Simulated assay, not measured.
Amino acid sequence: MALKKNKKALSNKRNIITKFDSKSPISEQYRTIRTNIQFSSVDNEVKSLMVTSSGPGEGKSTTVANLAVVFAQQGKKVLLVDADLRKPTVHYTFNQTNTFGLTSVLTRQLTLDKAVADTGEKNLFVLTSGPIPPNPAELLSSKAMEQFYQDALDLFDIVLFDTPPLLAVTDAQILANKCEGTILVVSSGKTEKDQVVKAKELLDSAQSKLLGVVLNNKKMKDTNYYYYYGVK
């Protein structure tokens, strides 16, 4: 049991490098992405941001978790929402239980302020997915979701959504229409060009504002670090 806990702790340290190694080159790249997001909309500050990918395993959940941390480190009150109601991971990343969460709020079993959890990182709160529902797309497109969105923006400076991959289900498209900006994560050497093109088309059809693309897992020469780039 102790071995499993140690492995989980090490995994979380790798996943949330901005929290556990804030001076690393990778953490600096996340801060660069944060700056690029802020410059992308100078007149109107982005308060709601969706992070997605074309397919699974491209690093969207790691990216959104680290972005949440660097925004919180800037002094903003941040809420990270696990809107992947099919394969949620935020509760694993931040060592939370998932007995209640977003689905509990949307079905009015809990209020938002009762459902959010403190992460131990100053200014950063998470809302896990909660119990996996039989109808994720319907819940995300419901009036209850509209109300949640407004309540969250009233309580927090910025709300970040971790969503399912675009090409797998329609959930991300539903949220893309609601959020003020979208970040698309692609994995170097894994994501196919036609997948990226299709993902961009889906975001366009949802009238989403694509702020940029994060190139993930790009191995740089003469270094052991994998850099994360924000590409406008």
Rank of each mutant, 00 (worst) to 15 (best):
G181C: 09
T111C: 04
P25V: 04
S22V: 04
L80E: 12
L127C: 13
D82V: 03
V42K: 12
K198R: 12
F20N: 11
L112P: 11
K8M: 12
P88E: 01
V196W: 02
N95C: 00
S61H: 11
V78G: 13
E45F: 00
H91Q: 07
C179P: 09
I26C: 03
L10W: 07
P131A: 10
L127N: 13
A152K: 03
K76D: 15
V51W: 03
Q96N: 10
N123F: 04
F148V: 04
K87V: 03
K8I: 09
P165F: 02
T128P: 14
A115T: 13
G120Y: 03
D21H: 14
S129N: 11
P25R: 04
V105I: 09
K190R: 08
P165R: 02
V231C: 07
G57Q: 10
N6H: 07
I16D: 07
A199G: 04
D157W: 03
K218E: 10
E121T: 14
D171C: 01
D21T: 08
N135Y: 10
Q109L: 08
T182P: 07
D113G: 00
V105K: 10
M50P: 07
Q73P: 13
D222A: 07
S54T: 05
E146Q: 12
P133H: 10
L127S: 12
V78C: 08
S24Y: 02
S54N: 01
S142A: 02
R14W: 04
E28M: 00
K76H: 14
I132K: 13
L184C: 03
V185S: 06
N216S: 12
V231P: 06
F148Q: 08
G57W: 05
D21M: 10
A172L: 00
L10M: 09
L85R: 09
K198F: 00
D157H: 11
